[in-house]
Each structure stands twice: as C-alpha cells, then as structure tokens.
Design a protein around this nucleic acid. Structure first.
Lengths: 164, 164
DNA sequence: CTATTTATGTCAACTTATTTACGTATATTG
DNA sequence: CAATATACGTAAATAAGTTGACATAAATAG
C-alpha cells in the first residue's frame, strides 16, 4: 500500500532526508572515483556519459544539443561547455543540422570511437568494484526505485517551470 | 546469491551503467528542484545538507571542517567555499578550536537555527512531491542498496589514495 | 631537545551545474 | 505576407565539486 511522504510523519520525512543525503554522497563519490578510474583516458564521468550516449545506434547519425541535454537531464548551457571541451580534444564534432540552421548535430569522431573502445576494460573493472556485492537482481530493484524517483523529480521540475 | 559485476557479463555491465547514469540524473535533478523549492530561503541543497548536519545534537557544540567534510564526503577545499558563503550570510560561524589552533569549529548561528526552522514546511512539501508513490518500505529498501553502494565507493576511493 | 613528518584550513585552477540573457533562425498567428 | 512568438546554441555570472599546493600548527621520531 503505497503512501506519499506525509509531512506529519517523522519517519517518512527522516527516510526521505536520508535518501536525498545518500544520493548526494553516492553521486559525488561516483563522480570522484569514476573519473579517477578513467584517469588515463582523460575522460570525466560526465564526458563518459556523453560518449556512452553517442555510441548508441540511434544517435550515430548525430543528436541535437537540445535532445542530448534532455537525455542527460542537464541544461543546454552546461552541455555546451562539456561538448566544447570534448570537441577541443577531438572526440566529438559539431555539424550544422541541414534541416535547421540553428541546430548542431553532435557526433563522435573516429578518435572518439577509439577512445570509447579503449575505455571499456577500465569501465568494466571500475563497475566490478563499485557494484561489489550488488547482484543483478539488486540492481534491477534499485533501478526500479530510481526510475520512480527520476519521474517524480521530472514532474516537480515541470511544475517549477521546467527549462528556460 | 550475490555476485559481483562480472566484466564478461553484458547484463551486469549494462545494469551497472544504467545505475550510474540514473544516479547522475537523479542527483542533478534533486539539486535543481530542491534548490528551487527552497528558493525563498536562499539556501541551496548543499547548504541545506550542512545546516541539517549542524542542527544535530552531537554537533551543536561545533564540528571541525575535516569531520564535516568526512560526513558529507566532499573535499575540505570545497567545504571551505560552501561554509564561507554560509558564514557571509550569517548562518554559520567559525570559531578557533581551543584544543588545536589550526582547527575551526563550525556552528549554526541563531539566524542559522531560525533559518533551519523556517525551512521545515517547504522541506516537507518538497519531499512529499519528490518521494511520491515511494512508500516508507520502498525507501528503506533503497537506502539499503545505496548504503551498499556508498561503502563500495568509499572502498574504491581509499584504494585510489583517498583524500590528499 | 631538535629534526622530520603529518595534519589543519584555505588558496588557486579547472570542470560541472544552474540561471539569466541574447543573436539568430524558425514557427505561428492574423 | 508581416508581425509576433518560440526555439536553438552559446555567453556570462554564480555555486559546487575535484586536484595540487601551501603556511602554520601539532605529532612523531631519534
């Protein structure tokens, strides 16, 4: 029987607070340790997430900044900065979208593809450590909860005015 | 039967990747929406976490920067910046630790206590939305997994050289 | 006791995240 | 068709996160 967090329920409030705090800690640590684990590739976790998106079949032909920002759930402005650094290092290219002069299609360069390939062994090793003692089933459960949370936060965001 | 992520197991790898990505998205969105929800109090989520730590009984007498950084799992350098902004706004004070001249004890000011009190209604309302459809039991399960993850990441961090 | 090592909080540089703003292009309206 | 509204990617400012570095204080070793 699912209930919303009841503002008058101290336990629910405490659990929500602990969850938010744990999320904060884990996200920061994932960023710190992940970036360190991939250090020899000179790719931060955020850049890694972008590379990971771009290798997907559906976006091999390129993806617009706006769409990539929506996928990552970050602002276009922030993405501009991250992409610029990736572009400066030759891992992604920006091409004008033939159908919309304002839009830029983001694609991996051959060097980007190679970098992604080079990273795989270290990625796997890192995840083995980061997810130690969490079974596939555990992760599936966790993903289920986090999906719920993500949907909630998206709804809150929309209610707050969304982007721009 | 718990198994580590097997580097040769595509499902495990995929799940781990999705988890990391979901964590990234949720943490960013939690920060964005939480900061917006508390906007009228002019307190970011990170500052909120610090205030939340300082109101606890065990730290009413003050906590050293190093200890607070360890609790939050952020670097001392970063914490210095956040604390400086909080101090500039009169919500925390730094006092020299009588037992160690190098150390600063961080405490809430009376204005900080008042701010914390003022925030409570908006915090509860925000959590009600953010945790919608997640029962107390769901959250307890999720905390269990995230604790496991946090411990893993701390171990990885230590193995990578830890702080400094 | 002195010399050396370690610890404390902060500074500087860089990356990432948000918001506000804007020039330019595209879509919509009348 | 022209006027208006909206969309696109990027610039600027601010907050938060990391690493490397450092002046000063405290702990440790000989």
């Amino acid at each position: 029987m699912k209930q919303d967090v009841d503002p008058s329920d101290p336990l629910g409030l405490s659990l929500a607070n602990r969850m938010a705090f744990r999320l904060y800690q884990c996200a920061n640590m994932l960023n710190k340790t992940g970036t360190k684990a991939l250090e020899r590739h000179e790719v931060t976790t955020q850049q890694w997430a972008i590379l990971g998106a771009l290798v997907r079949d559906r976006w091999v032909g390129g993806i617009a900044v706006r769409d990539l920002a929506a996928l990552l759930m970050v602002s276009r402005q922030n993405l501009t900065g991250v992409l610029s650094r990736l572009e400066a290092r030759g891992l992604v290219e920006r091409t004008v979208d033939a159908n919309d002069n304002r839009s830029r299609l983001i694609k991996l360069t051959p060097a980007g593809w190679q970098r992604w390939s080079d990273m795989q062994a270290d990625i796997a090793a890192y995840y083995a450590d980061a997810m130690r003692d969490l079974s596939n089933n555990d992760m599936i459960h966790m993903l289920h909860y986090m999906d719920r949370l993500r949907q909630n936060l998206r709804a809150v965001d929309d209610a707050q005015g969304g982007e721009d």
